[in-house]
Simulated assay, not measured.
Amino acid sequence: MSHISVLLHETVDALLAERNTGIYVDGTFGRGGHTRLLLSKLDEHARVYAFDKDPQALAVAAELEQQDPRFKIIHASFADLKQELAARGIEQVDGVMADLGVSSPQLDQAERGFSFMQDGPLDMRMDNSQGETAAEWLLQIEEEALANIIFKYGEERYSRRIAKAIKNAGLIETTGQLAEIVKTAHPKWEKHKHPATRTFQAIRIAINKELEDIDIFLPQAVEVLKPEGRLAVISFHSLEDRLIKQFIQKESSLAEDTGWGLPQVQQDTRRLKKIARICASEEEVKANPRSRSAWLRVAEKLA
């Protein structure tokens, strides 16, 4: 299955806010759907910088770089946003977008090891040119730590049973093996959901430091935005969405400061204002079922 960009027009339109020039960042290039639409709406003076860790995404981006001089790809995590932009002489930008999670090609290629639907080597790395594979990681992690990760990142209530079964299995080399171990250990399967869904999600998030990177990325995105610049982030599960929601809430709310014996004073430390929270339309969900769980949150930098 080819990758279909979720909330494509909604994201780009929200990011531009009727502008047609400036400097923009796509924190997650993927297969370039959002970047290409963005470039199509910008004038010849605009520039777009994209980040990605996936070697296959980088290969697609390199082709786009050759076709469009306004575009540059950066082989790094969006957690390195500020540092990588500064290295290119860029201090401020007009918009930052990110489409979180795993792309369809990553899920659908068995050799990438993300999916329990197709048997392949147990890898799960977004950047499979460096770092530990999921197989290596599972061998060295302690059972209790693994159980905590499956519970926290997978929101899996049977995390302890599953972690015990995984550790008792020793070396697990393929996604099929891991899926079968989890399936056997899981006492209660959810309707319409594979019993390994939550465990695979948890391991993938941990391997790629996905939530840590979001926590590092969001404050940097606000710092590099110009006044009236937009931040647009698409999330696919509650853990991601909660981080984005709480961050925007904090950055768009008045902080309260209470001094000794003094009346409560409100300090205006706001850096953002909320613009929108958008889900996929019925038509989009029919065309692309993976968009069903997607949420786009948009905020604007205050002056």
Score class of each variant (00 low, 15 high):
1 M>H: 15
5 S>R: 04
7 L>A: 01
7 L>K: 08
7 L>M: 02
8 L>D: 00
11 T>V: 06
12 V>W: 06
17 A>N: 08
22 G>E: 10
23 I>A: 09
26 D>N: 14
26 D>P: 14
26 D>C: 11
27 G>H: 13
30 G>T: 09
31 R>M: 12
32 G>F: 13
39 L>I: 12
43 D>P: 14
44 E>T: 14
54 D>Y: 07
55 P>G: 04
58 L>D: 04
62 A>K: 15
65 E>L: 04
66 Q>T: 09
67 Q>T: 12
69 P>F: 10
72 K>A: 09
73 I>T: 03
74 I>P: 01
76 A>L: 05
84 E>Y: 01
84 E>M: 08
85 L>W: 02
89 G>T: 02
89 G>F: 00
91 E>A: 14
98 A>V: 06
102 V>D: 03
102 V>C: 13
102 V>P: 10
107 L>P: 14
108 D>N: 14
108 D>G: 11
110 A>Q: 02
112 R>E: 02
117 M>E: 11
117 M>L: 14
118 Q>F: 15
123 D>Q: 03
128 N>T: 05
128 N>F: 14
129 S>M: 02
130 Q>C: 08
133 T>H: 01
133 T>K: 03
142 E>K: 05
143 E>G: 03
144 E>Y: 11
150 I>M: 10
151 F>E: 09
154 G>E: 07
155 E>L: 08
155 E>A: 07
157 R>Y: 04
159 S>N: 12
165 A>E: 04
171 L>S: 03
171 L>T: 11
175 T>M: 06
176 G>H: 05
178 L>P: 06
179 A>N: 07
181 I>N: 06
182 V>S: 01
182 V>Q: 04
185 A>Q: 05
187 P>G: 10
188 K>T: 06
192 H>K: 15
194 H>K: 10
195 P>Q: 07
199 T>M: 08
203 I>C: 02
204 R>G: 08
208 N>Q: 03
210 E>R: 01
214 I>L: 15
214 I>C: 04
220 Q>L: 05
221 A>W: 10
225 L>K: 00
234 I>E: 02
237 H>Y: 11
243 L>I: 12
244 I>V: 15
247 F>H: 09
254 L>C: 08
254 L>E: 13
255 A>F: 14
255 A>C: 15
255 A>N: 15
256 E>P: 03
259 G>D: 00
260 W>K: 12
263 P>H: 04
264 Q>D: 09
264 Q>L: 13
265 V>S: 08
269 T>V: 15
269 T>D: 15
270 R>V: 07
276 A>L: 05
277 R>Y: 10
282 E>V: 10
286 K>W: 09
287 A>K: 10
288 N>C: 06
288 N>E: 08
290 R>C: 10
291 S>Q: 09
291 S>R: 12
294 A>S: 11
298 V>H: 07
301 K>N: 01
302 L>E: 03
302 L>Y: 04
